[in-house]
Computed example of a mutant assay.
Amino acid sequence: MTDPESAAGGEELQTTITGPENAAPDSPQRNRPQWPDLPVDDDTANLRQGPDLHEACLGLLPLVGTWRGTGEVVYPTIDGPFHFGQQITWAHDGRPFLSYEARSWLLDPDGGIIRQAARETGFWRPQQDGSIEVLIAHNTGVVELYFGPKGDMRSWQIETDAVARTPSAKEVTAAKRLYGLVNQGDLAYVDERAMVGQEMQPHISAVLHRVVG
């Protein structure tokens, strides 16, 4: 694997980061939508473009990009399982954090789109000891503050330290997620939750392929 500091400076990334066997063919040239007239550095989801990745974020370097794929939702309090499509983007503006955005859509048994579904936005904030603070706000009225230990450049585990919600949101008391690189560069994750009176248990799982970066 390329030395992370060299990669952050714009040199070619190796297969353990980009996963070209499974990535979209044009992913190295693509980026998230840009604002060319923005007077400060815009977020970039492509390490070959834009500002250098901050040294503090090197432990999260493999996540930077846009990922797209499918997954499944299950829980005792809902019908299902439901299948969904999802896109997740981790980007940066040269400062010591990553911006995070995820949006999903429900799929029918044939893979057709039924309707838009959950959205999330937030920040991943690496700390000096390599641990991670993660803030995620959901369109459903839930805000989660996660904490995770130092990852190993291939997997990252985070667990809620605090959960807040609006009066109209469903009860969520705890959550944890495990993200990992699999299958020559795909990104898989599992989300477990304790909500609406249920104990912590699997809720969402997905496998995503790199489409940007």
Rank of each mutant, 00 (worst) to 15 (best):
Val142His: 04
Pro4Asp: 03
Glu101Gln: 05
Gly148Asp: 05
Pro51Ala: 14
Ser205Trp: 09
Thr121Trp: 15
Gly111Ser: 09
Val134Tyr: 11
Ile158Glu: 03
Asp191Gln: 04
Gly80Asn: 00
Thr2Tyr: 07
Asp186Trp: 05
Ala164Glu: 14
Gln157Ser: 14
Pro39Tyr: 09
Leu135Ser: 07
Val73His: 15
Pro167Gln: 09
Ala206Cys: 03
Val182Pro: 00
Gly80Glu: 00
Trp35Phe: 12
Glu5Thr: 13
Pro81Phe: 08
Leu107Glu: 02
Gly213Cys: 10
Leu106Pro: 01
Arg154Lys: 14
Val190Lys: 00
Ala91Ser: 15
Gly19Cys: 10
Tyr75Asn: 03
Val211Tyr: 02
Gln128Gly: 05
Trp156Arg: 01
Ala56Glu: 10
His83Ser: 14
Gly197Glu: 05
Gln128Met: 11
Leu53Met: 08
Leu53Arg: 09
Asp3His: 06
Gly185Cys: 02
Arg68Glu: 15
Ala8Gln: 08
Leu98Cys: 05
Pro96Leu: 05
Trp156Lys: 07
Gly65Gln: 10
Thr121Ser: 15
Asp3Trp: 01
Leu13Lys: 06
Glu72Gly: 04
Asp37Tyr: 11
Asp3Ala: 09
Trp90Asp: 03
Ala23Phe: 07
Gly10Leu: 08
Trp35Ile: 13
Asp161Trp: 06
Trp67Gln: 11
Gly141Met: 05
Trp156Asp: 02
Val74Ala: 12
Thr44Lys: 07
Gly50Tyr: 13
Leu61Tyr: 00
Gly65Ala: 07
Leu107His: 01
Trp124His: 06
Asp191Leu: 15
Ser155Leu: 09
Ala194Cys: 07
Thr18Trp: 10
Ala206Val: 05
Pro81Asp: 04
Pro202His: 02
Glu133Arg: 12
Arg119Met: 11
Met195Glu: 09
Gly111Trp: 07
Asn183Lys: 13
Pro4Gln: 03
His209Phe: 08
Val134Phe: 14
Gln184Asp: 08
Gly130Gln: 01
Gly151Glu: 09
Ala188Ile: 00
Leu187Glu: 01
Ile204Lys: 03
Glu120Pro: 05
Gly185Pro: 01
Val207His: 00
Asp152Met: 01
Asn31Ile: 08
Phe123Tyr: 12
Ala162Ile: 00
Ala91Arg: 15
Met195Arg: 15
Ile132Leu: 15
Trp90Ile: 02
Gly59Lys: 00
His83Gly: 13
